[in-house]
Design a protein around this nucleic acid. Structure first.
Length: 309
DNA sequence: CCAAGTCAAGGTGCC
DNA sequence: GGCACCTTGACTTGG
């Protein structure tokens, strides 16, 4: 399956005739300071939560109709989740919508995953940072629990290794996680700190699967060929189908600096042969990390003759 | 309507 | 040391 990440874009013609691309997943945010200074009523917070989760429900319906069966949820569906009161989280409509989404996903053999933000650093030296990371992970596990999804990495909570060289702390933190997080966790190789080889060591101590990102691997290969790294990552997934990620450098910046090369392109320009082959043999689902989101997926289906499922 | 400034948080590379 | 970047800008304010 090909996976859509977070947004769904549509072209919109502005009054001056130019075309812009808007995200139709209209997610609302809440701000920490405004919350703390009492600017948000309970109704406003609840309204934000219901608005956001309703959008997830409608986007899943929309993409299924168009043949996309894998979706990465945004991290911002329930802003300030760790500090709002329990009666907002346990609101009937919030919970029933989550349950409906879970049933919809299972019934239609869809895959839903999430990718908590960069502030989740289980390998941090700072216990407060590790504790905040736990809160964020708890939110994602709570979402999938309320969707009544199995606790497997198929419905993955995917994170990075975090602070480089701190594999020991990473392993220790993972081992202390509750099953609702640990059994869904996956670790993705990044551009500078944790290669597939580094994460394999963590896997050997925790059984947490490795999510292979072919673009990141090109920055930080840990001494392995990309194909070997992908296949090594595949061996960590047990009975769940491995997830991999695909992105490209923006055209023209391929020979640029580290910063330039990591810039994601709007559309798909190339798919590594080994990754395309693995997908055609049904050995992996691929999240497409392109700025034009669904438009990039549909263009790639034509350009590369790939199947959405 | 539009542009600029602001927003909770970590780690990293580039300048 | 400051800034941009990361899976992803939205919101407020002032023109």
């Amino acid at each position: 399956m090909i996976g859509l990440c977070c947004h769904y874009v549509v072209p919109v013609t502005k009054r001056n005739g130019t075309i812009e691309y808007d995200n139709i997943l209209n997610e609302r945010t809440l701000q920490f300071k405004a919350f703390n200074s009492g600017k948000y009523s309970k109704e406003k917070v609840l309204d934000t939560y219901i608005n956001n989760i309703s959008h997830v429900k409608s986007i899943l319906n929309k993409i299924l109709n168009e043949g996309i069966k894998s979706y990465r949820m945004s991290t911002g569906v329930f802003p300030l989740w760790d500090i709002v009161s329990d009666d907002i989280k346990n609101n009937d409509l919030v919970l029933s919508t989550l349950k409906e989404i879970g049933a919809f996903v299972l019934k239609n053999n869809m895959r839903i995953t999430c990718h908590p933000d960069q502030f989740v650093v289980l390998s941090s030296d700072n216990p407060n940072v590790r504790d905040n990371s736990l809160k964020t992970l708890s939110m994602h596990a709570w979402i999938f629990d309320k969707m009544e999804l199995p606790k497997t990495p198929y419905y993955s909570i995917n994170i990075h290794g975090g602070k480089g060289g701190n594999g020991k702390q990473l392993i220790e933190s993972i081992c202390a996680l509750p099953d609702s997080i640990k059994n869904r966790l996956t670790l993705e190789n990044d551009e500078s700190s944790y290669s597939v080889a580094d994460l394999y060591e963590v896997y050997a101590n925790t059984q947490v699967p490795v999510c292979f990102d072919s673009h990141h691997h090109s920055f930080n290969d840990g001494g392995m060929s990309a194909e070997d790294a992908m296949n090594k990552a595949f061996t960590t997934w047990g009975t769940s189908k491995p997830m991999t990620h695909l992105s490209n450098t923006t055209p023209g910046l391929e020979s640029g600096s580290f910063r330039e090369k990591r810039k994601h392109s709007d559309y798909v320009h190339y798919i590594p042969e080994y990754q395309l082959k693995a997908h055609s043999e049904n050995k992996t689902d691929i999240d497409f990390e392109f700025k034009m989101k669904n438009l990039a997926i549909f263009k790639a289906v034509k350009d590369f003759n790939i199947s959405l499922v």
